[in-house]
């Protein structure tokens, strides 16, 4: 449908040629999805934007940009030097949560994708025994919600956790000093525990994104490099890596997206105040819906722009395993 004038709409509704009928079929096939997307996503998101400018928390009334002003002032206030000069007496709480989301998401993304490259490489290049079973086991955590990932961390690293108790026993210290969950928010132990919780969700996703990339790597070039005397590491660096680089960029974008949207894990472990955790506090504690909506709108705009621009203007390729 290159033009959407009334004539082409009429011919789609009352088709005269086979070409018109095909258009009508495409339209009919797309209608259910577009209806769901409209009523399930577009209308609620528009309503969310409306609420974010509302003067009341309980209805869409009036128009104010107070929530956005507070949000951005708080983000500016968090900046060093600039914040002190521009907005000296503003609470930088939103700046803190945004910064936490960004650095923590970036760190876990880099580590997860590094693991993903290692695992995809191992699965693709080596003949491993029980490879099918290994792949199934690796895919298992993809189906687990974030709260269960958090529980897995409690099992491993909590005060009754297996690894923390083993470590405390070997080091001869109290288990409270080595436990990574159940610690006060913001402490090093708690953040490391959350870090592992993120990895639990993100490593399998990164691995399966990269497996799709690895399936397309030209093995002949690698074999040629090896037979010409390059070692495994050099072959990887000069031959394999250039081929999988678009896949890695794609995996970084989508894994970072996942990291920003993780909520259940943070809610259970309560280790670091990130943006998604702030939503919970805005809604369940203060019921400041305009503020939550404004934060959600900014968050959504950022993820959307980041995903689409990233996939469009970098060499990123997304392939499914």
């Amino acid at each position: 449908m290159s033009t959407l004038d009334s004539e082409s709409l009429r011919r789609t509704a009352v088709p005269e040629t086979e070409r018109d009928r095909e258009r009508r079929r495409i339209a009919l096939l797309s209608v259910p999805f577009l209806a769901l997307a409209t009523f399930g996503a577009f209308v609620p998101l528009a309503q969310m934007l409306r609420i974010s400018t509302s003067q009341s928390s309980f209805a869409a009334e009036g128009f104010t940009l107070a929530a956005y002003r507070e949000l951005f002032a708080s983000m500016v206030a968090y900046l060093p030097v600039v914040g002190d000069v521009l907005v000296a007496d503003v609470n930088p709480v939103y700046g803190v949560v945004v910064w936490n989301s960004l650095w923590f998401g970036a760190l876990t993304t880099v580590v997860s994708v590094a693991f993903g490259v290692c695992l995809a490489h191992t699965l693709e290049k080596y003949d491993l025994p029980f490879e099918g079973t290994i792949v199934t086991l690796l895919s298992f955590p993809i189906s687990l919600p974030g709260i269960v990932a958090a529980f897995m961390m409690i099992v491993l690293f909590g005060t009754t956790g297996v690894l923390s108790n083993a470590l405390a026993f070997l080091a001869g210290t109290e288990v409270d000093t080595v436990a990574l969950t159940g610690q006060p928010s913001g402490t090093t132990n708690a953040v490391v525990g959350l870090f592992f919780g993120y990895l639990y969700s993100m490593i399998p996703r990164a691995t399966f994104l990269l497996r799709g990339t690895y399936a397309e790597v030209n093995g002949d070039a690698e074999a040629a490099a090896r037979s010409l005397g390059a070692g495994p590491l050099e072959t990887f660096w000069h031959v394999t890596l250039p081929q999988i680089r678009p896949g890695i960029v794609g995996a970084v974008i989508l894994t970072f997206r996942t990291a920003l949207a993780i909520f259940g894990t943070v809610l259970v472990l309560k280790a670091l105040s990130v943006v998604t955790f702030r939503f919970d506090q805005e809604i369940q504690v203060g019921f400041d819906l305009p503020m939550a909506s404004a934060l959600a709108a900014v968050f959504f705009a950022f993820t959307l722009a980041f995903t689409f621009l990233g996939l469009r203007f970098t060499s990123a390729e997304v392939s499914e395993a």
Binding site: A41, Q47, I51, L260
Partner: peptide, 23 residues
């Protein structure tokens, strides 16, 4: 259309906040 159908566009928590006052 393909991208919108295949990529998970809206994170669950954002969609939840959007649903609170819409319906």
């Amino acid at each position: 259309l393909n991208a919108v159908a295949v990529l998970p566009i809206v994170p669950g928590i954002i969609l939840g906040i959007a649903f609170l006052r819409t319906y």
